[in-house]
Amino acid sequence: MTSAVARPKPSDRGVPPFGGFSLQLVELEIHRLLRNRRTVIFSVLFPVFFFLVFGLNSAYANLRVGQGNTSAFIMISMALYGAVISTSGGAALVATERVAGWSRQLRITPLHPLAYIAVKMATSLVLGAASVAAVYITGAVTGKPSMPVGIWVTTGVVLWVGSLLFAAFGLFIGYLLPSENGMQVIGFSLMLFSFGGGLFIPLSQFSHLLRELAAFTPLFGLNQVVHYPLVQGSFDWTWAANLLAWLIIFTGGAVWRFRKDTARV
């Protein structure tokens, strides 16, 4: 009998730390993301392009806004746009993988579902950082945006971290509409949210009614908060309320769909 080639005792086997989360997984996911040209174009090149189109117009670029100028204000808006596209798009990939059966395959590995989502979040954050960096570096190269160095850093970090709110949005939509359609719904919604949040057109140009409504859209609160270091003045707590409310709605929705989903698989 060849059983003399003893297998290790079942009890000697270990369990991976952090539910299976590791940076090597993030690295592999990033390689995969970069291979997808559409993702790179949407999340990195588009925001840069938008900044070049809207942010350099000499009719208003040098107008003073708080600690800096309008070009800097627009640069922050476009970087936020890129960051939320990255995080929501990356999170929505969870859904397409579920449809393909990959998440089922992963369920027969030690990978914990939360560690899996953490890998996706981390990957999205890296892509988001690339997007923010691309917009900010473009801004610096053109020399138009003007604000103190410290505010470049704080706004960049705040909007990068704040974009995680939209990872919850991406998960929710991804679980709700697990297909290519989900991606399109996300792209279209973010476009609408960006108008509502005042990323593309200053809210002051909206009619009174639209302005009131805009304050309830999901990007409004986050957009106000990330511009705060530049604009300064009084901090309006309704911004935080908006942000928190949408965080609860998106997370709640994602958890609700996730539960339904695992019950079925």
Partner: peptide, 21 residues
């Protein structure tokens, strides 16, 4: 058991290899 279409064969194997203790 589904697979990820835009991973390579070797990447898929390495990905899963990282999951085990």
């Amino acid at each position: 058991g589904g697979l990820v279409k835009d991973f390579t064969v070797a990447e898929t194997v390495r990905y899963v290899a990282h999951l085990f203790a």
